[in-house]
Write a protein that binds this DNA or RNA. Structure first.
Lengths: 226, 226
DNA sequence: CAGCTCGATATTGTCAACAATACTTAAGGC
DNA sequence: GCCTTAAGTATTGTTGACAATATCGAGCTG
């Protein structure tokens, strides 16, 4: 994978990473009320760092805490997932526009290379699940950072993507449309390479909107359940 | 002020509120490196709750922490403020569109009443500063919650608005354009009342873009300094 | 028999002491 | 005289014990 040697130099960071991945993978079920002591024994932590991590996770909306009543993992609904995609649509549209204006030529070449490797993986067939999961994440990650908008990148990478990945695990998706998505990615990169911010924004919004509709249909057909 | 009897039922919440307002008001200067013990004595806290609050504030991007090196308030630049407004533009545009589709008739009436009271305050002249500060916040707050998009409201109310308010204090603004802003607010509410989501989105985006340009001009003229 | 009040228990919130690490100051060598 | 190096100090990170509060169960009353 691209990033994350979780090399957390402090116990609280470690706790944060552990809990976050546990929530995303579903190891901690949504709606589950979980005690601090149990979390401590489960992840070999003490309560101090744990509480600090809980604070961070709460402020990111991955869990809720009622005073003296414990923490529970945030429960997720299909409607909320759709709302998430609506937010992504406008924010990543902005990211694409700013990326078109600000990415370096080298970054754009890297982005194109990324897509080439994705294509290879898809053609070698077995990589479809991978592509949908991490490859897609990689693509959007690069554009978010390429926007040179620190707060925007922080909100996308630090908040929204984790939520989306949480749903991905739950849906055990890979119910994707890799070829179509790859084509859409190519068009977006083309627009960025031509420094056409307006077009990049338009294409990105349409891309995410299509992904949203795809999931929505799958859910209504009962192919995917939450 | 409008809300916030800070009635925090836990010491950590109290710490969080105190620190947040201290950062927003500039009582803690940006870039300032501040020790934990000093913060404790300054706000009558102990280090446990304090550290939990620091974790929350860090994940919200109001301060940065290097391990064993202490915390420092995030430093802010004019460019970052402009980026913030670009994010607001797309997110609040979405909020306005969804509010137009989902607000109850009662909520819309309340929103109109809010604008009436703002107008009265402006006409009574001395309320200009108030309007620009809290009244504007109130208006955008209602639309964010009216969008019925929990994550969107959380991101706007929990992240962006605090950042914007931080800049507001720094700029000692009120360098506003209350009458023009009120008119724009009225048009947005009209579009919402007519359930015209597309128009509401367009008007909101234009409204925020105008506010951004206004600040940008003021900064370039040297009237405002960061 | 249902609803409520009251108490026991377990969990969370808080605190103060201990350990580990980074910054500072001073000394020595080049 | 300046840079490098090493010890001391101060600050952060961590731990375990203490206090406060909510949940759960039992007994009582209507």
């Amino acid at each position: 994978m691209s990033a994350t040697q979780p090399l957390s130099h402090t116990r609280a960071d470690e706790a944060f990473d552990c809990l976050q991945t546990a929530i995303i993978t579903g190891e901690l079920a949504p709606g589950e009320k979980i005690g601090e002591l149990e979390l401590c024994s489960r992840f070999n932590l003490t309560r101090g760092p744990l509480r600090e991590a809980l604070g961070r996770l709460e402020s990111r909306g991955l869990l809720v805490r009622r005073p003296h009543a414990g923490v529970k993992v945030v429960s997720v609904s299909a409607e909320e997932l759709m709302e998430l995609y609506r937010i992504r649509e406008v924010m990543e549209g902005l990211a694409a526009r700013q990326a078109a204006e600000r990415m370096t030529d080298q970054e754009i070449r890297d982005l194109q290379a990324t897509l080439d490797s994705h294509e290879k993986m898809i053609d070698e067939a077995q990589g479809q699940a991978y592509y949908q999961a991490e490859g897609d994440y990689d693509f959007h990650h690069r554009i978010a950072t390429g926007s040179r908008n620190a707060k925007l990148a922080q909100m996308l990478l630090g908040d929204l993507y984790y939520m989306v990945r949480m749903y991905r695990y739950r849906l055990s998706t890979s119910a994707g449309r890799p070829h179509r998505a790859l084509g859409e990615h190519r068009h977006i990169v083309e627009a960025i390479a031509q420094r056409d911010g307006e077009l990049a924004e338009f294409l990105m919004k349409r891309h995410i909107n299509a992904a949203r509709q795809n999931i929505e249909e799958k859910i209504q057909e009962g192919v995917l359940t939450i």
